[in-house]
Nucleic acid binder design. Structure first.
Length: 317
DNA sequence: AAATCTAGCAACCGCCAAATT
DNA sequence: GAATTTGGCGGTTGCTAGATT
C-alpha cells in the first residue's frame, strides 16, 4: 500500500536546527497556529519536512517546555509510571507538566534505567515493566502467584541464605500487592492527579511485568485511583531517602511492609517452600525503612546464628 | 596535547491509528 | 467501506562535548 511519505527527502535539510530555522518556525506558528504540518515548511520558508517541524516545535520550541534538571519528585513519578505503563512515554509525559515524551524517554534511557539497573532494581521494575509485549493478565497478582516464588537472575555470587532472602523480598512486593488490591477494591479511593506525592506513591504492587496497553490498576478496575497506605509504619519515613529511585523503592517497604498480615503470609510461605521453621525467619521491620533496593548479597545478610537470619531489610538494602 | 572512548541528547525513521476524502 | 492523509508514538541513530588514556 503505497503511502505518500510524510517527508519527501528531496532537497530537504536534515540534522540540527539553526536559530534562523527555529525563528521561522516560531513566527509561522505564532501567526497561523499549529497543524497543517505537511505544507507548513514551504509556507514558512523552511527546507524541512513537516514531520521534522512538528517534532522541533513539540519538543523544543513550544512555549512553557521545561528542560533539564529533573527533580526527585519527577524521578519518582517517572519510575512509578514506567513501572505501571511501560515505555509509553507520551502517557507518562501527560503526568509531568511541560515535560516532553522525548525528553522523558531520553532521561529514562540515559539516567534512570541505568541507576535502577545498577541497584538491581531492574529485577523488580525495569525488565518486567519495560516490556512492551506482556499480556494484560500478567500483572494480576493472584493467590496462585503468591504461592510461587519468582526467580531472578543473580549477577554476582549469592549464598543460599541471600537467595532465600531475596525471594522473600519478592514475596513482600507480591503479598503486599495482593493485600493492597483487596483493600483497594473495598476502600474509597482518592483521585490521582499525577502529582505523585511521596505519600501516595506505590500503593499497589510493582508489576512483575507490564502489559502493552493495560496497567495492573486498569485490570483491577482501579485506574486513576490510589489508596491511602494504611498498614505502613510512618515513624521513620522521614528518614528515608526520597531523592532517588532507591527512595521510591524504599517507599514501598516503609509504607507497606510492616503489616502483620504480610509477615504471617511470608512466614507461611517460607514454611511451605523451604524446610525451615517460620520462626527462623525473624523480621525486624523497625529497620525496614533504612533501605534501598538492590537485592541482598552475602555480606548484607545479618546472621544471627548458623540458621537464623534477622531480615532487617528483607531484600531492600 | 592528541587520540580514543563514552554518555547524553537531538533528531530521524518506521509504524500505527484516527481522521478525512 | 476503501483508500489516503495526517498526526502521534516509540525505537534507534548519529553527532557532540566531556572524560579518559
Amino acid at each position: 500500500m503505497g503511502r505518500t511519505p510524510f517527508c519527501s527527502s528531496d532537497g530537504l535539510k536534515k540534522g540540527a536546527w539553526t536559530a534562523e530555522e527555529d525563528q521561522k518556525l516560531i513566527s509561522y506558528i505564532q501567526k497561523h497556529g499549529e497543524g497543517g504540518w505537511r505544507f507548513l515548511p514551504q509556507k514558512a520558508g523552511l527546507q524541512r519536512c513537516g514531520k521534522s517541524c512538528r517534532l522541533r516545535w513539540a519538543n523544543y520550541l513550544r512555549p512553557g517546555i521545561k528542560r533539564g534538571d529533573f527533580t526527585p519528585e519527577e524521578d519518582k513519578t517517572i519510575i512509578k509510571l514506567q513501572a505501571e505503563l511501560g515505555n509509553r512515554w507520551a502517557a507518562i509525559a501527560r503526568h509531568l507538566p511541560n515535560r516532553t515524551d522525548n525528553e522523558i524517554k531520553n532521561y529514562w534511557n540515559a539516567h534512570l534505567k541505568k541507576r535502577l539497573a545498577s541497584m538491581g532494581a531492574d529485577q523488580v521494575t525495569v525488565s518486567g515493566a519495560a516490556s512492551s509485549s506482556g499480556n494484560s493478565d500478567s500483572n494480576a497478582v493472584t493467590d496462585t502467584e503468591c504461592a510461587k516464588p519468582q526467580q531472578s537472575e543473580p549477577t554476582k555470587q549469592r549464598s543460599a541464605s541471600a537467595l532465600l532472602l531475596n525471594k522473600l523480598a519478592t514475596r513482600v512486593t507480591q503479598c503486599v500487592g495482593r493485600l493492597r488490591a483487596s483493600q483497594t477494591l473495598q476502600q474509597p479511593t482518592m483521585p490521582f492527579n499525577g502529582g505523585a506525592e511521596s505519600s501516595d506513591i506505590f500503593c499497589h504492587p510493582l508489576p512483575s511485568s507490564t502489559p502493552e496497553s493495560t496497567s495492573w490498576a486498569d485490570n483491577n478496575n482501579i485506574s486513576n485511583s490510589l489508596t491511602i497506605p494504611e498498614c505502613g509504619t510512618t515513624n521513620a519515613i522521614d528518614e528515608r531517602d526520597s531523592s532517588s529511585s532507591a527512595g521510591v523503592l524504599n517507599d514501598i517497604v516503609a509504607s507497606e511492609f510492616a503489616s502483620p498480615t504480610c509477615v504471617d503470609e511470608l512466614s507461611d510461605w517460607v514454611n511451605t517452600n523451604y524446610s525451615i521453621e517460620p520462626e527462623q525467619v525473624q523480621i525486624d521491620y523497625s529497620d525496614s525503612m533504612t533501605v534501598g533496593y538492590g537485592g541482598l548479597w552475602d555480606d548484607d545478610v545479618i546472621v544471627v546464628d548458623d540458621d537464623d537470619y534477622t531480615v532487617g531489610s528483607l531484600g531492600f538494602l
